[in-house]
Design a protein around this nucleic acid. Structure first.
Length: 418
DNA sequence: AGTCCTGTCGCTACCACAGTCCGAG
DNA sequence: ATCTCGGACTGTGGTAGCGACAGGA
């Protein structure tokens, strides 16, 4: 498994960009993700130091390694001794954080083997601060301690650090992750709620949890074409409206997914498979968060991290598990439908005030499942390397041309040679 | 009501080529 | 059973072109 930066092919890859499905060194990460506003919204996290292919979810203090959920499970889920290892959740970030900001997010960077020599730290030192405009997403979150499935403690104590930074930071200890890091026997939205971020709950006043003003002051509703009323309707109050959204792919659109289109037809083969996976929540394999979308459960094997990124307010939560940004869109992985699909999000406390009964909800879920079976899926970039090449390949009338041939469109320069 | 024209929208094919797959040896 | 090799196949994005459809004359 290569651990070389997918972009420069020289440096050791340090971070994983879900949207690009790429492993990048910090320099390239910064370069790539400072290109435009959209790319800045890509959520990134450390790369698993064991498999070097998946986004890291936790940092094992004892072993001093960052691990993806699968590797974490393999390493800590089977051994009683290993399961006692103290693990720290790894935050996602977006934007173009500076070295100090990244240090804040990943306080354990200082714990890297051979302090001061790691590629990460070296690169951190090379980075300059040019963009401090980002807002911390989970600013006032308190330190949280969650239990993972194997019983080992996963400590999240860097939220305060993150709070100090101006980076967009989402913690992997966030909602969707709960399924894997919290005690699976724990009732959804029970004890864990105390430490969970103030997430939106159907039927509750969305603004109520938006007390962290810093978090939301940059939140622009126009970006997601969703207002609070719609959100409330979307998740329970007005079922019919929700269904309409489902029918039209509205959920996906609202959450940044690409419009269901012809490209989706390529995924038809996955429809049948999805049907069998819908509603099935793997309670023993941490690779699949029960908050992760069913799509992801089908199309991806292990993409466990749930990230909240950028300016995404709760109504645009990124339930990573799939791809794209904008995989088609930065957060096409963000599939709110999974919330309905999987039932009440585990982090969401019971909301007695909601008018959406469990019975009608179940009906809605059933109808949605049926509809989704026949619906096409959004396009996902399966091979980031191919995408990267296509992104820079010169074209003539949209068609690729041989290297060296005359072209009329250069994606890199957006210029035409003739 | 039926026909024609225009504009809009969605979908598909096309291109090069690195990477992947898979059978043969 | 394992490894190597080579040919076939796949997938990536922007654009042109086509058909379907809606609306107005």
């Amino acid at each position: 498994m290569s651990c070389i930066c997918d972009f420069c092919g020289v440096q050791k890859s340090i971070v994983y960009c879900r949207s690009d499905a790429a492993c990048l060194c910090l320099s390239c990460d910064r370069n790539v993700h400072s290109a435009n506003a959209l790319s800045k919204r890509h959520s990134r996290t450390l790369l698993c130091e064991r498999c070097n292919s998946q986004p890291a979810l936790v940092r094992c203090a004892e072993e001093r390694v960052s691990l993806c959920q699968s590797c974490d499970w393999r390493g800590h889920g089977t051994s009683t001794l290993a399961s006692a290892h103290k693990r720290q959740t790894i935050n996602c970030y977006s934007g173009c954080p500076s070295a100090s900001e990244l240090s804040s997010i990943w306080s354990f960077v200082l714990d890297f083997p051979s302090v001061g020599e790691s590629a990460c730290e070296q690169e951190l030192g090379l980075m300059s601060i040019t963009d401090n405009s980002m807002k911390n997403t989970w600013g006032n979150n308190e330190d949280t301690i969650t239990q993972n499935a194997s019983g080992g403690g996963v400590e999240t104590n860097n939220m305060r650090d993150a709070d100090k930074s101006s980076v967009w930071v989402g913690s992997s200890s966030m909602p969707g992750l709960n399924s894997s890091t919290q005690n699976l026997e724990q009732a959804p939205g029970s004890a864990n709620n105390a430490s969970s971020p103030k997430l939106c709950c159907p039927g509750t006043k969305v603004l109520a949890f938006c007390e962290d003003d810093d978090l939301y002051e940059d939140f622009n509703m126009d970006e997601m074409d969703l207002n609070l009323e719609n959100y409330e309707e979307l998740f329970g109050v007005t079922l019919n409206h929700s269904e309409e959204l489902f029918e039209n792919g509205g959920i996906d659109s609202l959450f940044g997914a690409k419009e269901m289109s012809a490209a989706d037809s390529n995924c038809q083969g996955a429809v049948a498979a999805e049907g069998s996976s819908i509603g099935l929540v793997n309670t023993t394999q941490p690779a699949c968060s029960n908050a992760a979308s069913a799509d992801s459960m089908v199309s991806t094997k292990t993409e466990p991290i749930i990230c909240f990124t950028g300016k995404q307010a709760p109504s645009s939560l990124s339930f990573s598990g799939l791809t794209g940004e904008s995989n088609a869109g930065d957060y096409q992985d963000c599939d709110a439908s999974s919330m309905l699909l999987m039932g009440e999000p585990p982090w969401c406390p019971p909301c007695p005030e909601t008018s959406f009964t469990s019975a009608s909800r179940s009906e809605a879920v059933m109808r949605y499942k049926e509809k989704k079976k026949t619906r096409k899926f959004d396009k996902r970039v399966r091979y980031a390397s191919r995408k990267a090449r296509a992104d820079v390949r010169k074209r003539v009338k949209g068609r690729f041309v041989k290297a060296g041939d005359a072209y009329d469109y250069d994606p890199l320069n957006h210029t035409r040679s003739c």
